[in-house]
Amino acid sequence: PTPPYLKWAESLHSLLDDQDGIHLFRTFLKQEDCGDMLDFWFACSGFRKLETSESQGEEKKLKLAKAIYKKYILDSNGIVSRQIKPATKSFIKDCVARLHIDPAMFDQAQTEIQTMMEENTYPLFLKSDIYLEYT
């Protein structure tokens, strides 16, 4: 069978589908001062998956949407905020301000961060000492 670390080199999704892969990628991103990108990516996925049916679901969603907005998008010097297009940021800000909470409200921002990782940090990770030493 193919060892997991070889699968990690196939695509970003293969890497993010494996706990050890995520751990190593996070260590690398932290070194590069962009660990927040990965946390944001997972936070967006988690937000989309939140159940509406659970009690207080809507209140929890609103709280979470605000927390994600505050931590990753509001601070314009943050690594995530700097990678997201101004129009996308305005859209999210507007959703939060109008209390218009939609499961897909972070999708565009997540895509922008994912593209950034696919084109930039992920290829760098595959060439990094941290990955090569692991293999």
């Binding site: 589908d17 494996d18 706990q19 997972f42 936070a43 988690g46 998956k49 939140l50 709280k63 927390a67």
Partner: peptide, 20 residues
């Protein structure tokens, strides 16, 4: 503030793949 962080952490963990 703590509970906001907890909520965020819980959300991030929920999106991670489960241990195989």
């Amino acid at each position: 503030i703590d509970s906001e962080d907890d909520l965020l952490q819980e959300c991030i963990s929920s999106a991670m793949p489960k241990k195989k």
